[in-house]
Deep mutational scan, measured.
Amino acid sequence: MQFKLIINGKTLKGEITLEAVDAAEAEKKFKQYANDNGIDGEWTYDDATKTFTVTE
């Protein structure tokens, strides 16, 4: 399945997509990506659109 991450950071904004088996795997990958890029914020997930959002 394809999942999307919307980044609303203080210095980094944008979207990325990835393939994952389920939402838990996608969340783990997205949070690792955010951590690697210094993004720390409030996370939400919309199951209907398979979209994660992180807002700093």
Rank of each mutant, 00 (worst) to 15 (best):
K28F: 08
E42T: 14
K4L: 12
D47A: 08
A24N: 05
F52K: 00
I39V: 07
Q32C: 03
E25H: 12
N8T: 14
D46W: 05
D36G: 08
K4F: 06
Y45H: 02
K29F: 09
G41I: 02
A24V: 06
D22F: 05
A48Q: 10
D47L: 08
T49N: 12
A26Y: 00
T17R: 07
V21H: 07
I7F: 14
N35Y: 11
A24E: 13
T49K: 11
L12F: 07
A24R: 09
Q2S: 14
I39M: 11
W43A: 01
K13G: 12
L5V: 03
N37I: 12
E25T: 13
F52Y: 13
E25I: 14
T17L: 14
Q32H: 05
N8R: 11
G9T: 15
T53C: 04
I16H: 12
I39C: 03
W43E: 00
K31R: 07
D36N: 08
K29C: 04
T51L: 04
Y33N: 02
N8L: 14
D46M: 08
N8K: 10
I7G: 01
Y33G: 02
L12Q: 09
D22V: 05
K28S: 11
D40A: 15
K50I: 04
F52Q: 00
K29I: 07
E42H: 14
A26I: 02
I7N: 01
E15S: 07
T11A: 12
E19H: 06
M1V: 12
T49V: 08
L12G: 09
G9I: 07
Y33W: 14
T17W: 15
D46A: 07
I7E: 01
F3L: 02
M1N: 15
G41F: 03
T17Y: 08
K13V: 12
Y45W: 10
E42A: 12
I6W: 08
V54T: 02
F52E: 00
I6K: 09
A23Q: 15
E19G: 07
T44K: 11
Y33L: 06
E56Y: 14
Q2K: 10
V21Q: 13
K28H: 06
T17C: 03
T49M: 09
L18D: 04
F30L: 10
V21P: 14
G38W: 13
D22G: 07
A23P: 13
E15Q: 10
G41H: 02
T44I: 07
V21D: 13
D22L: 05
L5F: 05
E15Y: 10
T49S: 13
M1K: 13
K31P: 00
V21A: 08
L5M: 10
D40H: 14
E56D: 06
E56Q: 12
T55V: 10
A23D: 05
N35W: 14
A23S: 14
K50D: 04
K31N: 07
T55Q: 14
G41R: 01
A20K: 02
N37W: 11
V21S: 14
Y33R: 03
E19R: 03
E27I: 10
A20W: 03
D47R: 03
T49D: 15
A20M: 04
Q2G: 09
T17V: 15
L18G: 05
A20N: 03
E56R: 07
V54S: 01
V54W: 02
T53R: 09
I39R: 01
A34M: 04
T11C: 07
A26H: 00
I6L: 11
N37K: 11
N37A: 12
E15D: 11
Q2R: 14
N8D: 04
T11H: 05
K29T: 08
M1H: 09
D40S: 11
E15T: 10
T55K: 07
G9M: 11
N35R: 07
I7C: 03
E19L: 08
L5C: 04
V54L: 11
G14M: 09
T51W: 03
E25Y: 06
Q32E: 06
E15N: 12
F52L: 02
E56M: 13
N35A: 12
E25A: 11
T51P: 00
K10Y: 03
M1R: 06
D40Y: 13
I16T: 14
L18S: 08
D40I: 05
E27G: 05
G9N: 15
A23K: 04
T44H: 15
K50Q: 12
I39F: 11
D47W: 06
N37L: 09
F30W: 02
T55F: 10
I16R: 05
D22E: 13
K31E: 05
K29W: 10
E19Q: 13
F30E: 00
G14Q: 07
L18P: 01
T49P: 02
K13A: 14
E25G: 08
I16E: 08
D47Y: 09
F52R: 00
K13P: 12
I7K: 01
T55M: 05
G38V: 13
F30T: 02
K4M: 11
K29N: 05
W43L: 04
G41Q: 01
K4A: 14
Q2L: 04
D46H: 11
K31Y: 07
D40L: 10
K50V: 05
N8C: 06
A20T: 10
K13Y: 04
T17N: 10
I16C: 04
E15F: 13
Q32P: 01
Q32K: 15
D22W: 02
L18I: 14
A48N: 15
F30Y: 03
W43N: 00
N37D: 03
A26P: 00
W43Y: 03
A20Q: 03
E27K: 10
D36T: 14
Q2W: 13
E27A: 15
Q32A: 12
A20L: 05
T17M: 11
K29D: 05
T51D: 02
N8Q: 07
Y33M: 09
F52S: 01
K50Y: 10
G14F: 10
E19D: 06
T55L: 13
D40T: 04
N37V: 06
G14I: 09
E27N: 06
I6M: 04
E56A: 14
K10R: 08
G38R: 11
T55P: 01
Y45Q: 02
K31C: 03
L18E: 07
E19K: 06
T51N: 03
L12W: 15
E19C: 05
I6T: 07
G38C: 05
D22P: 01
K13W: 14
D46I: 13
E42G: 11
Y45K: 02
N35M: 12
T11E: 04
G14S: 10
Q2A: 13
D36C: 08
V54C: 03
I6H: 08
D47H: 10
D36I: 11
I6N: 06
F3D: 00
E19V: 10
K10T: 06
I39P: 01
G9Y: 07
A24C: 13
F30S: 03
A24T: 15
I16W: 08
D46C: 06
T49F: 15
D46E: 12
E19A: 08
G9W: 05
A48R: 03
N8G: 06
E27C: 05
L12P: 06
K31H: 10
K50A: 11
K29R: 06
N37G: 05
T53F: 11
A34H: 01
L12M: 12
L5Y: 01
D46T: 07
K10F: 12
I39E: 02
K29H: 13
K10C: 06
F30N: 00
K28I: 12
K31Q: 05
T44C: 06
Y45M: 02
L18T: 06
T17S: 13
F30H: 01
Y33A: 03
K28M: 13
D36Q: 14
T17E: 10
F3Q: 00
Y33T: 05
Q2C: 05
Q2P: 07
I7S: 02
D40G: 14
F3K: 00
D36R: 06
T55S: 14
D40P: 10
I39L: 10
A26F: 00
T53S: 15
D36S: 10
E42F: 15
G38F: 08
K28R: 09
I6V: 15
A48I: 12
I7H: 03
I6A: 05
